[in-house]
Write a protein that binds this DNA or RNA. Sequence first.
DNA 1: TCCGCCATGCGTACAGTGTGCGCATCGAAC
DNA 2: GTTCGATGCGCACACTGTACGCATGGCGGA
Lengths: 246, 246
Amino acid sequence: MSRSRTTDSKPIPSVWAREQRRADQPALSRDAIVREAIAMLDADGVEALSMRKLGARLNAGATSLYRHVATKDELMELAVDEVTAEVHVPPADRPDWREAVTEAAQSFRRTALRHPWLTLVLGQAGLAYLGPNYMNFSERLAALFTAAGFPEPSRAIETVFSYVMGMSSAEAAWLTTVARSGETEADLIARLMPAAQRAAADHSHLAIPHAEVEEATTDPAALRDMKFAYGLDVVLDGLALRLPKG
Amino acid sequence: MSRSRTTDSKPIPSVWAREQRRADQPALSRDAIVREAIAMLDADGVEALSMRKLGARLNAGATSLYRHVATKDELMELAVDEVTAEVHVPPADRPDWREAVTEAAQSFRRTALRHPWLTLVLGQAGLAYLGPNYMNFSERLAALFTAAGFPEPSRAIETVFSYVMGMSSAEAAWLTTVARSGETEADLIARLMPAAQRAAADHSHLAIPHAEVEEATTDPAALRDMKFAYGLDVVLDGLALRLPKG
DNA sequence: TCCGCCATGCGTACAGTGTGCGCATCGAAC
DNA sequence: GTTCGATGCGCACACTGTACGCATGGCGGA
């Protein structure tokens, strides 16, 4: 039942037989393309996005997309920048810089878990991501750390951001695995646990505490939240020592 | 002049005309395949490795590789595990845990920069990397942090490792960009600087200090070393606060 | 009202990708 | 000498990103 907008799959020789362009169907546009690409990435992961499938979703041919986007890589850049807008960085006038930075870090993490392809794509691009939203994100972070009184804010930012990226990308990868398995996170953990225990048997220091096994199989999301918060606190403690006069 | 081992590109109907297998040519083996794959990854990056090209490098057909390796993903896992063996984690009996952890972190970073595809591939795999070398790496880290006296060593490890991964993957991506540009790192920075300055013009907090511009264009590698060491110290300071009685 | 232009869409094509299948070959075990 | 299992490989399939050139339709100017 799904047919191309103007022609059937076999071209019809007569002009008259061809469908009219549907007026209600919005024209292809860069924004629409990026939006749909993000939807596909979110739903099925980075390797499920192809220009043909994306075109089909928009009732368009694959190569039509290239009128609005130079290359698939550029499309990915646009998707990254678009999604970056979802990260909320508090304004710089907050009294408590730790709270503000924590909020920003958590917001980034949530965004990265909502779009598990984000860290993967970000990690592939050395820089090049100078899109407006990403610039804004950086600027707001810089303002925050400057207001906090750090003499070299970019150093502090890099440290926190590296931690957040490392942690988020590991989580995102794990959640992708979970999604692909079709099971609950808890179920998957329970199923994998015996193998992990067996693998750890030969390595005396790798035993997992009982309490953690318990929580991992009951409320894994909470455990992940806690781990992230723990590491973030560590980093912020270390940074606090570098603030002038105490 | 490059021809397949046993046949020409057009099959020759007579058995007699076919080349004999070269006796000195070592047989295909899993190890040889992984070794050559790593060489290709190091030289030309992750998207330059295809089963056909890899086969050609080994004087073999693409599908011959599948006798020794189930799938390309599995090959990547093997490559990751192989390379992980290069990371040096000091034994747990060192008197100064900070020095030992720093050594391990630096060693990981150096490995990740020698093989700039490492973090990329590692970041794609939720877990699944339970290869022997990787297990050994984890075990030695666990021993180190346990000996240091951390009550929950895995928490501390995760924190440090996230930072190291985040930092290393950003650096690796940047170095990949540099390599692709064909320029020196310093030259590339000098060329990109005006654009960066212009982009930062609208964002008051993003200005780059003169001293840093100076160093970035003269000895960028040293600057990167310094940044990594700075953040690592931050994290270790934060962790030190969590050691019992002190 | 007509003409011409130009942005947009798309069919086709090309060079590549990972990998399943079945056949040819070879060394070793009996 | 025969059989058998392991190994290599040609072919084929479905799929990828994207260059090219044609068709179309809406719009500005005459």
